[in-house]
Design a protein around this nucleic acid. Structure first.
Length: 356
RNA sequence: GGGGGGUUUCCCGAGCGGUCAAAGGGGUCAGACUGUAAAUCUGAUGGCAGUGCCUUCGCAGGUUCGAAUCCUGCACCCCCCA
């Protein structure tokens, strides 16, 4: 409900209690893939600090926790200072206090769960050390922190930003295919770093992958390996399988000799849309409408522009004419048509069956 | 409470009352080159229709033949003083 001021250039938006509950549950679902919550000895634990901070009275908090925080120290923390130095945005007391909450959380977790190490991105350094200080003052114990550098791409921009938004772990937001494609497309310069950061591969193996990649970067073996490892980690073998199959269909052999059986399997994983079958009967469907419906264009004007510049494709054949209409002759398989914008943005249109 | 500054199209940021759908940059999209890479170059970038129409410049009114540009009120943000 209260956010960390670090990194943000503006006061962050506060979320409602329900939204947060939902977010916490969502995180739990994703963490379950990566951590073992059922281990008999030391199961992973997901806790919500609302459970202990929520009931904490304001006065008690000020008395028991707040008094241990010298304001002059707080002011020197990067997260605070950077915000105060900006002239176009301020820092509310709420955000300023965030550090106290996170620090207290650490102390609380130590008391109740013997938690002694807090890890996080390097932007959390200030908050983590605040927690270490607090626990020492409060309980006389020594806690530890560990941070890792924030991951940025070689061009300085943040990782995980794709053309069409952010990269999500949740399959509903970023399908395994899209997730896989993100890593396949990664800059050469960033592959090694990502292999080290995100995979469990050993150092020698990574080094040999990178070395081989440098010999023949065009094969993008490093990217393939990275994409495979990560897709399996996040979406499991099944997700990886679908992602690969979709990739093979689109970037592999000719499109045209496909069957519904092949396409329908990947249908849900690729941006797609179902349409009534009579859309391609008679006159046929305008290519402009088709691109819009498939989500490859924001508007008809956008679709027109794409096609006029040579970026529109049906079944991997360039659309030459904006006036062109699509009929059943343009289907790639029994019911599915493969549309593409640019070199690598694919979408499917399925005719008949359910539509939306 | 007092004083000052601000709110422009995805973002930043220009913008003489008409020639402003609005400079410039970023981003994004597309093309060329390649390797589904980077860099570079080119084009595009409100909507619908193709030399026209419609909706945009915090919100609501007003002045004007005509406003993003002037006036009034409101909202929000920032800074300084108390």
């Amino acid at each position: 409900m209260i956010g960390d001021p670090s990194g943000k250039s503006e006061e962050r938006q506060l979320l409602s209690e329900e939204t947060l509950r939902a977010n916490v549950e969502g995180m739990g679902r994703q963490m379950r893939r990566l951590l073992d919550f059922d281990d008999a000895e030391r199961p992973a634990l997901l806790v919500n600090n609302y459970d202990w901070v929520g009931p904490f009275g304001f006065l008690e908090f000020l008395r028991d926790v707040g008094k241990h925080f010298p304001v002059n120290v707080m002011l020197t923390k990067d997260s605070v200072r950077s915000r105060l130095e900006r002239t176009d945005s301020g820092l509310s007391y709420t955000e300023f206090s965030y550090m106290l909450l996170q620090a207290y959380d650490f102390a609380h977790l130590r008391r109740h769960h013997d938690c002694e190490l807090q890890v996080g991105g390097s932007d959390q350094w200030g908050n983590i050390t605040a927690g270490i200080d607090l626990a020492r003052r409060l309980d006389g114990v020594q806690l530890y922190g560990m941070t890792c550098p924030l991951l940025t791409k070689s061009d300085g921009t943040k990782m995980g930003k794709t053309e069409s938004g952010a990269l999500w772990l949740a399959p509903e937001r970023t399908s395994p295919y899209q997730f896989y494609q993100y890593w396949i497309n990664l800059d050469d310069a960033d592959v090694g770093k990502c292999l080290r950061f995100f995979t469990d591969l050993g150092r020698e193996e990574i080094e040999s992958i990178v070395a081989e990649h440098q010999l023949d970067p065009g094969r993008r073996e490093a990217q393939r390996r990275l994409a495979s490892e990560l897709t399996r980690l996040v979406h499991g073998d099944e997700g990886l399988h679908v992602a690969r199959r979709a990739t093979e269909i689109f970037f592999g052999a000719e499109i045209g000799e496909l069957s519904d059986a092949q396409l329908v399997q990947i249908f849900a994983d690729v941006p797609s849309k179902g349409m009534p079958v009579d859309a391609i009967g008679g006159e046929g469907l305008s290519v402009l409408d088709a691109l819009c419906a498939a989500g490859l264009a924001k508007s008809k004007g956008d679709a027109r522009r794409t096609i006029e510049q040579g970026g529109g494709y049906v079944n991997n054949r360039r659309i030459e004419n904006v006036e062109q209409r699509l009929t059943s002759a343009d289907l790639a398989s029994e019911t599915v048509m493969v549309l593409r914008s640019g070199k690598k943005r694919y979408a499917l249109l399925r005719f008949g069956g359910e539509h939306d």
